[in-house]
Amino acid sequence: MESLKFVDANTWIGENYLSREYSIEDKNLAGLLGQRIKKYNIAGSIISHHLSLFYWPRQGNDLLAAKLKEARGDNFGAILFEQEYFCEPHLFEKGIKDRYAQGFRIVRLFPKSNKYPFEARLMSKFYEVLDHYSFPAMIGLDEIDVTGNKAIQWERLADIAERFSSMPLIIDGQNSKSLLYNSYFLSLMQSFGNIYITTHNLYGVAQIENLVSCTGKERLLFDSYSPYQDIGLSAQRIEEAELKKDEKEAIAGKNIKKLISNIKLGQV
């Protein structure tokens, strides 16, 4: 069987200050990405930089922008939301356009880690811009878990998805117990056509197959969640899924590529 061509919707580079194991050298990004093509057939990635999360989003984004110049093909950056825009929201639209030109294709939200709102009403001026350009937003479940013990604010996700229906809203499982959340996932995906879910921690028995059977092939996005999860494990799970070839291809890479190509900033 011809191996699947992957595009990784969620991979991290840079130093994790808590662990060498979870630190990915960023000095030779082209080399790193080349290895991933060779080893896993990952032809593209949406890359986030640890510095954006652990130190300061804007500086991490700037650093990643410089690194992205080395990247080719379907390799793009993830913007970690820059809180400076709370003071000057009118600059957000230009900021998104500039980041797009630098090779960024997703905005990631870390409201718990970085202490800002994510709710639709409080973030509407930003979501409106993303919605206008169909620019994807990604939010992690750990980031909207109030207690850290599975008290996830699902209703607020629904509110965002409903009010900003042209903005793809990608749910990143992070380290949460995604295997427990099928009812929430299905409810969200069936209610809102702009909800997407990353695959790396859909650990439940036949969870990927079951979600596809209920909602179709277009709503799951392969992600490695590297370095927090083994890349091969994430990729092989899709390769080994009991799904049709076209379903696997969609999850492996076509879905995220479609979201990226739908961004209405192509002329920038």
Partner: peptide
């Protein structure tokens, strides 16, 4: 010195 994402200093 320096900032931090979660400090939200203006």
């Amino acid at each position: 010195l320096g900032v931090l994402g979660y400090m939200n200093i203006l």
